[in-house]
Amino acid sequence: MSHTAYFFQQFINALSLGSIYALVTIGLAMVFSILRLINFAHGDLMMIGSYSILMLWNAGVPVWMAILAGIVLCGIAGVIMERVCYRPLRGSAEMTTLLTSFAVVVLLENGVTLLFGPNTRPFRILNFTSPTFSIDSILISKIDVISVVLTLIILLLTTLFIKKTTIGISMRAVADDLTASHLVGIRLNRVIVSAFFIGSLFAGVAGLLWSARAGKLYPLMGFIPVVKAFVAAVIGGFGSIPGAVVGGYVLGFAEVFLVALLPPELQGYRDAFVFILLIFILLVRPQGILGAKTMQRRI
């Protein structure tokens, strides 16, 4: 493989991985911007989505129906999570809700382990990893094309949503000034539920892509992506949706090219380098690339 071809191959990989990170991070950022809650259980929504799709498919539901239903179920799971776990704690300290999110992680991961067992299951629907086409020895798999195209469509729709719809503008208003949002008559619960629903739908899509990429799923599969999304959110500026997208892609590219450029004996430390990057950004530019200078406390 030529040098250019190798570079291009890695570029596609990075774009594809970055797309998934961006999708997960948007959900994390949406909820954070409104509630100042870092929902670490967001990764488990990916897991719930993937399990739902697989279980529906195993039960004989046509594959596209299973995918659609699984993603919608994921959205509903996010809404239930807010209602049951976070709403009763509305107004409590950020540390309390953060710790609660870890409790939700433990609950969901162990719950799914109890229900479906701890084993890794193959996730091979639609032959997602098979190459669709190749240009000059570069292989581009279906999953790469789907990840990138789907993410671009979702980003476009998200932009329209937050710019043009009343509920989308309300989300930005609540993130901007909670008191003023109350005073103009925004129904906070509607905005919060919408953020959880939409973020969880995206987590469902990301879960599908993540499992399809890996060709497998398991109860703890949400852990790594949510930690990565946390890093991406910090890179982009926590709570900013454009920042989430930028952070997702920066992280995707950083990871892929770290592995490509590092000597083979250091490649195993990829994630360590990612976290060094996190520490570096927290030290140098804690507000992230697109984050505002100051972050006020609210709710």
Partner: peptide, 26 residues
Amino acid sequence: ISLCPEGRRIFTSLSVYENLLMGAVQ
């Protein structure tokens, strides 16, 4: 009832038009 609060509290990251739209959110 509509309260225009002390210190204005406009939505600084929203456009003027969007601020007005939010006033009519209901």
